[in-house]
């Protein structure tokens, strides 16, 4: 268990904006159904969202997609401001949220520059037929508390526990380990793994793309100094100015 540091690489060159990651996340993590009124109230909960930006003028217009989810920052601005330690950093580099401690001041949400923290404005409700669909490994959150992407910590826990039981180690790229969004991505945009394991895909990509000389890697909104565990790879496009702007 020790020495792990979970991280993700998002290759924007591969992202088509298909939103399968969003759907996968909804069903894995017992996220309440986001219907139209909820979207209009701007209270929809999407632990991962695909932001869409337009570039250029019609007809020479291009859609740019960027999936944004909790960046699991090493210097997370949300952590120090929580008065009740509902959010803190665990030993595996994850920024975890303890639902039962949260009193709902929403300070963390204000201090998160990525805006990936969500508040339960209403008590979540599912139609009767959906009740058996809920994931038993994930808490159903009540109203009045914050939630956010956990890197599907329940999957990490389960695989780690199983590996320990069998005396093996957690395998990089194991579908049982990967968060739901990574498994659902049809183009392989999202890569998940242990950044401390130099053999893992994420570590190799980080090494070549973020620290390498001509790499495409960057952290989202680096100026904020949050040290995210998520690395974005720039779109391979001569005019990809938008991602540049966020660099």
């Amino acid at each position: 268990m020790d020495g792990k540091k979970w991280g993700m690489v998002v290759d924007l060159d591969k992202c088509t904006g298909c939103q399968s990651c969003v759907v996968a996340c909804q069903s894995e993590n017992n996220i309440p159904i986001n219907d139209e009124p909820l979207f209009n109230q701007r209270r929809a909960i999407e632990w991962i969202r695909v932001e869409r930006y337009w570039e250029g003028e019609f007809p020479n217009i291009k859609a740019r997609f960027i999936p944004v989810f909790c960046q699991q920052c090493d210097d997370a601005p949300c952590e120090p401001v929580c008065p009740v330690y509902a959010t803190y950093h665990n030993s595996e580099g994850l920024n975890v949220q303890v639902y039962n401690r949260c009193v709902g001041t929403r300070f963390c949400a204000n201090n998160c520059p990525y805006q990936v923290r969500f508040f339960n404005f209403w008590e979540p409700e599912w139609p009767e037929s959906f009740h058996n669909q809920l994931n038993p490994d994930v808490t159903v959150r009540s109203r009045g508390i914050m939630e956010k992407c956990t890197f599907c910590v329940q999957r990490i826990r389960r695989t780690s526990r199983d590996a320990k039981k069998n005396g093996t180690s957690v395998e990089d790229g194991d579908r049982a380990l990967n968060p739901a969004c990574v498994n659902a991505c049809p183009t392989g945009t999202l890569v998940f793994g242990d950044l401390n394991d130099s053999e893992s895909n994420v570590a190799k990509l980080t090494e070549s793309e973020l620290h390498g000389d001509h790499g495409r890697g960057y952290h989202l909104m680096e100026d904020y100094g949050t040290n995210p565990s998520v690395i974005y790879l720039k779109k391979v496009d001569e005019d990809a100015e938008l991602e540049e702007a966020h660099h």
Partner: peptide, 15 residues
């Protein structure tokens, strides 16, 4: 009784 939903706050205007 209903939850914070009865107010006008939303994302990102949490306060």
């Amino acid at each position: 009784n209903q939850g914070m939903g009865v107010t006008g706050v939303n994302r990102p205007v949490y306060w």
